[in-house]
Simulated assay, not measured.
Amino acid sequence: MTDLTIPTRRPRVLDLYCHRGGMAMGYHQAGFDVTGVDIDPDCGTEYPFEFVHGDAIEYLLAHGHEYDLIHGSPPCQAWSPLNAYNHKVYPELIGPTREAMLAVGKPFVIENVEAARPEMVDPIMLCGPMFDLRMYRHRLMETSFPLVAPEHPAHVELCSRNGYLPTPERPFMTITGGKHSKAWQRAAAAAMGTPWITTIQGVCEAIPPAYARWIGEQFLARVPVPAP
């Protein structure tokens, strides 16, 4: 008897500006094979999947056609409120990243901080309590496919101060940079769902995998992935 089963494969996602893999883990949990690209070679020491050291946009233009979905988290420092104190010049890569994604022609996601909203096109916002995470972490997601954010629960729980561990009275963590203890770093990584990340900077810059898992599942429910 002839086997008429259509061969299947796992969808592939390209994770640009991947850092240490918070979004990557979520896409993996949603069912994707993941390849990450970052200009910082140190990210490869903890990135949990295939890692490419290189320029994100150059790699996208050369290889983006090989993937089913492209995710990009361009550096957010240029729009971070902290830069009002730092007064440093950072690259503004949201626009160039979008242009390259459109040139490649694959479905895409662009992630960034709330302050970058003027640079983004009709983004939705995701936050920790949407996914039962004990932190408030607003991140914007611009997508080339329809996406409606889950209900956003009210911010009623109190947060511990930055650098302090949560308490029964203040059960949510504040996860931003600083000279924190190793105990704080481990607790923050656990709260984020990124226990493989071992540095303070790494966990402070990470995105909870739950965000990407939800996006990946929504994408796969809406956009069929071609068979090989």
Score class of each variant (00 low, 15 high):
residue 94 I to S: 07
residue 189 A to R: 02
residue 149 A to I: 03
residue 212 A to Q: 00
residue 52 V to L: 11
residue 156 V to Q: 09
residue 207 I to S: 07
residue 154 A to H: 09
residue 131 F to R: 02
residue 32 F to W: 00
residue 226 P to A: 10
residue 92 E to K: 10
residue 182 K to D: 13
residue 224 P to A: 09
residue 62 A to Q: 06
residue 86 N to P: 07
residue 106 K to T: 03
residue 167 T to V: 02
residue 179 K to D: 13
residue 159 C to D: 08
residue 165 L to R: 01
residue 161 R to M: 13
residue 11 P to K: 00
residue 226 P to H: 11
residue 160 S to Q: 09
residue 191 A to D: 03
residue 1 M to T: 12
residue 80 S to L: 01
residue 7 P to N: 12
residue 80 S to A: 14
residue 125 M to L: 13
residue 143 T to E: 05
residue 45 T to W: 06
residue 127 C to W: 11
residue 179 K to T: 12
residue 180 H to C: 10
residue 61 L to I: 05
residue 116 A to H: 11
residue 155 H to E: 10
residue 176 T to F: 11
residue 64 G to W: 00
residue 98 R to D: 10
residue 124 I to M: 14
residue 92 E to H: 09
residue 74 P to E: 04
residue 24 A to M: 03
residue 22 G to W: 07
residue 106 K to D: 00
residue 43 C to R: 02
residue 89 V to M: 08
residue 216 G to W: 04
residue 50 E to R: 14
residue 122 D to H: 12
residue 119 E to Q: 13
residue 165 L to H: 03
residue 68 D to E: 14
residue 76 C to K: 11
residue 180 H to V: 14
residue 107 P to V: 08
residue 90 Y to W: 15
residue 193 G to R: 01
residue 92 E to Q: 14
residue 90 Y to D: 10
residue 91 P to R: 13
residue 80 S to K: 01
residue 121 V to T: 13
residue 211 Y to S: 01
residue 40 D to S: 10
residue 133 L to W: 06
residue 5 T to H: 13
residue 210 A to W: 05
residue 93 L to S: 12
residue 18 C to Q: 02
residue 14 L to E: 01
residue 83 N to Y: 05
residue 216 G to N: 04
residue 110 I to M: 14
residue 228 P to D: 04
residue 3 D to G: 10
residue 219 F to T: 02
residue 12 R to W: 03
residue 1 M to W: 12
residue 111 E to V: 11
residue 57 I to S: 05
residue 172 F to Q: 06
residue 15 D to S: 08
residue 54 G to P: 03
residue 15 D to P: 04
residue 43 C to V: 00
residue 176 T to V: 12
residue 206 A to W: 02
residue 118 P to Q: 14
residue 185 Q to R: 15
residue 118 P to L: 12
residue 148 V to D: 12
residue 103 A to P: 06
residue 15 D to L: 05
residue 51 F to Q: 00
residue 27 Y to W: 08
residue 147 L to R: 13
residue 219 F to G: 02
residue 199 T to N: 01
residue 58 E to V: 13
residue 110 I to Y: 09
residue 186 R to V: 07
residue 127 C to E: 13
residue 166 P to T: 05
residue 162 N to G: 14
residue 214 W to M: 00
residue 2 T to D: 15
residue 25 M to W: 15
residue 127 C to P: 02
residue 103 A to Y: 07
residue 65 H to F: 08
residue 57 I to V: 12
residue 150 P to G: 00
residue 184 W to A: 09
residue 220 L to K: 09
residue 102 L to Q: 15
residue 35 T to W: 01
residue 132 D to M: 05
residue 108 F to R: 04
residue 207 I to E: 03
residue 69 L to R: 14
residue 24 A to N: 03
residue 45 T to I: 08
residue 103 A to F: 07
residue 225 V to N: 07
residue 130 M to W: 08
residue 104 V to F: 03
residue 161 R to E: 15
residue 160 S to D: 10
residue 128 G to V: 02
residue 149 A to L: 01
